[in-house]
Design a binder for these strands. Structure first.
Lengths: 204, 204
DNA sequence: CGTCTTGCTATACGTGCGTGTAGTGGGCTA
DNA sequence: TAGCCCACTACACGCACGTATAGCAAGACG
C-alpha cells in the first residue's frame, strides 16, 4: 500500500485523492497528479479519460471504501455512530476527501451527504433520542463533522499544533466529542437562545 | 444597497463576494465578476490591481463588517455567543464567505479563524464552563459552525428544502442549536466513546 | 515468428483567463 | 476654451492546463 507495489492506475488514483483533498479540484492540475504518482500526464488521460473521469473514479473509490469501513465497524458489533472519533489514517483522509468533494460540489458528494444524513437520522430514531427534528439534527451534525474535516488544518494552527499530525487530530476529536456530549451553555444563555429562536419562528 | 446606487468599485466588490462565496475563488473568473457587476473586466484591474488584490479587498471588507456586526450585538447588551443563530441576510452571506475563504485558504482567513477561536475561548472561560480543553473546544466549535455555513446547501437539499431560503437556514440553525444545547448520546454510548478515546490516548 | 493488445511517453493543439497597454469620454478647475 | 485627471472600455499577449494524437516497448496468443 505504500507506493511502488501498486499499479500505476491505483497510484494515480491515490495521488489524485491526496492532492484533491489537500488543494481542491481546481488548484490541482493533471501534471501535479502525474508527478505525485510518478507517471506521465498522458497516462492519466489513458486510464481515466478526462480530469472529470478521474474525479468520478476517486469519488466512487473513496465512498466505497468508506462504506467498507462502516461495515467493518458494524461487524465488530460496536455501534459506533459516525460522530465519534476514529484515528485510522486512511479513513481520516477519505473523510476529509469527502468534505472537500462536498465543497467542490459533485452529484456523488451530495448523494453521499444525504446517505449519511439518512443513516444518522435512523440512528437517532433507533436510540429513541428526544429531539424535535431528528432529520434536521442529523443534517446539521453531518455538516458539523464535515466542517471538522474540512477545516482541520485551521483548527490545528489555531491550537499551535502541526497540521495533519495525530496529536492535532486527537485533540480536535476529543474536544469535538466533549462538545457533542455536554450541553454548551449555561441555562440562562440557553433560555435566551430558545427565546430568540421562538421569536423568529413566530415572525416567519 | 440594492445595486445601482453603489459606486462601480463597491458593485465589483459585492459581486466578487457573492460569486466567490457561491463558487469559490478558482471557479470564478474576473469576467464573471465583471458581468455580475455590470462593468468591463479591465475596470476590476483598474480598481484592484489583480484578482488577488480583489480577493484581499473582499477579505478585509467582509471581516471588517463581521466585526461591526459583533460590536452591534455587544452594544445591544445581549451577550450572544457566536454559535447562536442569526438571520440577517448580509451577515449570513459574510459568514459563508468566511467559510469559503477558509477552505480556499488565505492568511487573512486563518487570522480570522484564530481570532474567533480566541474570542470563543475567552467566552468559555468567562462563563466558567467546565471543560478539559477550552481552547480545543473553541477551535472545534469554530470549525463546526464553519461547516454549517460551508455545507448549508447540502444540508438544505438533504432536508428537501430549497437551498438559500430562510426556511432552510432556520431549520438548520434550530437543529444545530439543539445539538449544542443537549448531550448527543445515551450514557452507554457516551461511556463507550470515552473509553475508546482514553484507550487511544494511552496508546499514544 | 507475426500481429494485437496494453501500459506508457512525448509532444502538439486550443483555449480560457489573468494580465498589460492604449485609448476614450466626461466632469472638473482655471 | 484649454488642460487634466479619472473612471472606464477594448483589445492584444502569454501562459497554464486540459485535451488530442502518434508512437514505442513488452507481453500474450495464434
Amino acid at each position: 500500500m505504500s507506493t511502488e507495489d501498486l499499479t500505476a492506475r491505483a497510484r494515480i488514483r491515490d495521488a489524485a485523492i491526496k492532492l484533491f483533498t489537500e488543494r481542491g479540484m481546481e488548484k490541482t492540475s493533471i501534471l501535479d497528479i502525474a508527478e505525485e504518482a510518478g507517471v506521465s500526464g498522458g497516462l492519466i488521460r489513458h486510464h481515466f479519460g478526462s480530469k472529470d473521469g478521474l474525479r468520478e473514479a476517486c469519488d466512487t473509490h473513496v465512498f466505497g471504501e468508506l462504506v467498507k469501513f462502516k461495515e467493518e465497524v458494524l461487524a465488530k458489533g460496536a455501534a459506533n455512530p459516525g460522530f465519534l472519533p476514529t484515528f485510522d489514517a486512511r479513513q481520516l483522509l477519505y473523510r476529509r476527501y469527502m468534505g472537500r468533494a462536498m465543497v467542490d460540489g459533485s452529484a456523488a458528494a451530495q448523494a453521499q451527504f444525504t446517505g449519511i444524513v439518512d443513516e444518522t437520522e435512523r440512528y437517532f430514531r433507533e436510540q429513541g433520542m428526544d429531539m424535535p427534528d431528528p432529520r434536521g439534527a442529523a443534517a446539521a451534525l453531518a455538516a458539523m463533522t464535515g466542517g471538522l474535516m474540512i477545516l482541520q488544518d485551521h483548527v490545528a494552527r489555531a491550537l499551535g499544533e502541526e497540521p495533519g499530525t495525530n496529536e492535532a487530530m486527537l485533540r480536535m476529536s476529543a474536544a469535538a466529542g466533549h462538545l457533542f456530549l455536554n450541553p454548551l451553555a449555561t441555562t440562562e444563555v440557553l433560555e435566551k437562545a430558545r427565546e430568540a429562536l421562538a421569536a423568529y419562528q413566530r415572525k416567519e
